[in-house]
Design a binder for these strands. Structure first.
Lengths: 234, 234
DNA sequence: CGGGTTATTGAATGATATCAACTTACGTGG
DNA sequence: CCACGTAAGTTGATATCATTCAATAACCCG
C-alpha cells in the first residue's frame, strides 16, 4: 500500500520524523501465530505497518462467533482513531513482523508533510472502500459468489503477477468462513465444487491455484458491482 | 457529525476558508426526491455536507439489484477521495439540501487548520467503522436481528432524544431491504412481527415508533459485537 | 508414529428468497 | 371531494440454499 511504500516506514526513522522535525521511534515487533497485536477496547496508540506475515482484524459477537473484518498482509497498514479505543482486535495469522509508530508524532508529522497526509487519507478511504466491497459481497447471500470473490481478491493482493501461481493460503477455512459470514463446512463444500469443476487446484489443504480465472470472475460477478451500469443518473 | 457541527460548514464561508487564508465558495444545492447528487464513476470534486433531508449511497450490482451502503442525514458528510472517481452513487431519498465544498481548497484548509484535519480523519474513520458495523450485521444471517439493529441505529441518529418519539421513516421498505441484504417481503414480515409483539408501532406505513427498546436491543444483540468479551488476548 | 487440529462429506432442519395475489396508501385530475 | 391509477406494502405457499449436527478423513507437529 502507498503508505508503507512511502516515506512513512521504509525510510524510518529518517523519513517522516526527520521531515517533521520531530524524530520518533519506529518500534519493530515480532508476533507468533495467534498472538494478538492489540485487542478491541485497548487504547489506540500507534499506527501499524505490516512488514511480514499477515494479521486478521476481527470482532467477537455475543453468540461467540467471530466476525473477521479484514486481513492485512505485508505492505499494508492499520490506522486507528487517535485517542480512541480500538474497535476490533488484531491477531497474527502466521508469524508476523510489524512496525509501530506512535500516533501523536505520526499525526504531527502528517500535518507538516503533505505526502504523508495524503497517504493517510488515501489509506483511510481505501479501508472504507474495502469495507464497502465486503458489504457488497455479504449482501448477496450466495456462497459460491462470495468464495469466488474472496479467492480473486486474495490472488490480486498476494500474487506477484505470474498467472496460475500457487497461492499460499495461510488462512484457515474457518477464517474464510468468518470473513464471508459462512460456515466452514460451506466454504469447504464450495472449494470442493470448484476443484471438481477444474476452476481451482488444491494441494495439501492450504495451497491453492486458480485454474480458470474467467469462470471464477463470472461466478463472483453474480453479486459484484456492475462497473458499467454505475453511471445511471436520475 | 463532528465535521458538520464544527467550523467547516456552520461558519462557512467565514470558517475554514478564512482560517486557511484561502476563502472558497460553499455552494448550496437543492435536490428533489430521487435526484442524484453524483453517480458512481463521476469524478469526485467536492466534500458534501447534508443540511436537510437524507441521501442514500448505493451501488448497482450486475444482476440489477441495488446494494445500499449507507444513508446520510442532516448534519452528516460525504467525503470522497481526492482525484478519484466516486465509487458509489448518491441519491436524494426525500427533498434534500446540501452544501458542497470543492475538495482541493478543503484539503488545503485542512492542512493549515488542525481542527479541520482531525475532524476529517475522524469522519473517515467513522465511515469506515460504520461500514464495519454493517458488516457485523450482514454477516449474521438473521433477518430480525438485522432489522432491529437498523431501527435502533435509525432511532439513535434521527431522534432528538425524546424517548418513544415518532420516527419519520422517509425510507421505503425496499431501501431497508437493499441496505440489509434482505428481500422487501422479509422486511415487511419482520416489521409486522415486531408490531404484533408490541415492540414497535406503525402508522400509515411510513411512521414508526419504538415501544420496547430493551427487547429490540436484545433481538439485535444476537448478531451484535460482544462489548464485554472483546478484550480477550491470545 | 500418534494425538490434536483442521478439513471433508452426509443427512436433516430451518430460514429466507421467490412467485403470486391482494390490500393499502397516495397523488392527480375530473 | 371523490374516482381512479399507480406505487408501495402485506400476506401466503413453495422451493432453495446454507446451517447444523455428526462422523470420518487428512494433515501437521512433536
Amino acid at each position: 500500500m502507498s503508505l508503507a511504500a512511502g516515506p512513512a516506514c521504509e525510510a524510518c526513522p529518517h523519513g517522516v520524523g526527520a521531515a517533521a522535525g520531530a524524530p520518533f521511534t519506529c518500534a519493530r515487533r515480532q508476533l507468533g501465530p495467534g498472538q494478538h497485536l492489540f485487542s478491541a477496547g485497548d487504547l489506540a496508540r500507534e499506527v501499524i505497518f505490516v512488514r511480514k506475515g499477515a494479521l486478521r482484524l476481527y470482532w467477537l459477537l455475543r453468540d461467540g462467533r467471530r466476525r473477521i473484518i479484514g486481513f492485512r498482509g505485508a505492505g499494508e497498514a492499520i490506522i486507528p482513531e487517535e485517542g480512541q479505543q480500538h474497535r476490533f482486535s488484531a491477531q497474527a495469522v502466521t508469524a508476523a513482523e510489524v512496525r509501530a509508530i506512535p500516533l501523536t508524532p505520526f499525526h504531527a508529522a502528517a500535518r507538516s508533510n503533505s505526502t504523508v497526509l495524503v497517504g493517510l487519507h488515501r489509506q483511510l478511504a481505501r479501508e472504507r472502500d474495502a469495507a464497502y466491497e465486503l458489504i457488497a459481497i455479504l449482501g448477496r447471500h450466495d456462497a459460491e459468489a462470495s468464495v469466488a470473490a474472496f479467492l480473486l481478491d486474495l490472488d490480486d493482493r498476494t500474487s506477484s503477477g505470474t498467472p496460475g501461481e500457487w497461492l499460499q493460503l495461510s488462512i484457515l477455512r474457518a477464517d474464510i468462513a468468518d470473513y464471508l459470514g459462512l460456515s466452514h463446512e460451506t466454504v469447504s463444500r464450495v472449494l470442493t465444487a470448484f476443484r471438481q469443476r477444474r476452476l481451482i487446484e488444491i494441494a495439501r489443504s492450504r495451497q491453492l491455484r486458480l485454474l480458470d480465472r474467467a469462470v471464477l470472475v463470472q461466478i463472483a460477478g453474480k453479486g459484484d458491482v456492475d462497473r458499467k451500469r454505475i453511471g445511471v443518473s436520475a
